[in-house]
Structure formats: C-alpha cells, structure tokens
C-alpha cells in the first residue's frame, strides 16, 4: 500500500522529467541566455589532452576502462 503511494507520487515526476528530456520544454533557455554555458569552464571537456591521458591510465588498469573509453582504440603501453 505504502509503496504504491510512493509510486503514484513518483510517476508524474518521472514522466515530467522524461518529457522534459525529450522535448526540452521544461525551460526555454534562449540562445542569448547561454552565456554561462559558453564559459570555458563549463565545456564538456575543457582539457581534452588531460582527460585522454587519464582515460588511458584508467583503461589500462581497470576492467571497465576499455569499454568506457569508447571507440578510441589503440594499444595499452603497459602489461
């Protein structure tokens, strides 16, 4: 019973989030409102050399690394 209630409450939220993600209708962020998002520190990958090196280090020392680093390919440079 109790868990059903929780589910009932969560459903609209989940649906809202889903809708929001799909249609991006939750907030209209106009192009001229994206100054903050354009800042270098907000870039998805502001230091690509550094992140590639870190990915390579993790990938050669962790079981999950190779797949998580995507399709970069290449050898290990390690044993």
């Amino acid at each position: 019973m109790h868990s059903n209630k929780v589910t009932m409450h969560l459903k609209p939220i989940a649906a809202g989030l889903f809708y929001c993600l799909l249609l991006a209708a939750c907030s209209e962020v106009k192009p001229w409102q994206r100054g903050n998002l354009a800042k270098p520190i907000m870039a998805a990958d502001p230091s690509p050399l550094l992140s590639s090196m870190r990915q390579h280090n993790y990938a050669s020392r962790e079981a999950a690394g190779a797949a998580s680093s995507g399709a970069g390919g290449g050898g290990c440079g390690c044993n």
Partner: peptide, 29 residues
C-alpha cells in the same frame, strides 16, 4: 546564427563517452 556557447553546449554529449581522441573533440571552446 550560432553563438559560441553553442559549440560547448550543443556538443556536451560528445565528451561524455570520451569517444573522441583529444584535440579531435569538437567540444572545446
């Protein structure tokens, strides 16, 4: 017309899986 910010935001996903070798990533501003 595209703002420079879009270069960063629009490509946010490309860095997520790190599939682009560095320098190749177009997510930089």
């Amino acid at each position: 017309m595209a703002l420079p910010g879009m270069v960063a935001t629009a490509q946010a996903g490309s860095g997520l899986l790190n599939q682009n070798p560095p320098g190749v990533s177009n997510a930089q501003t």
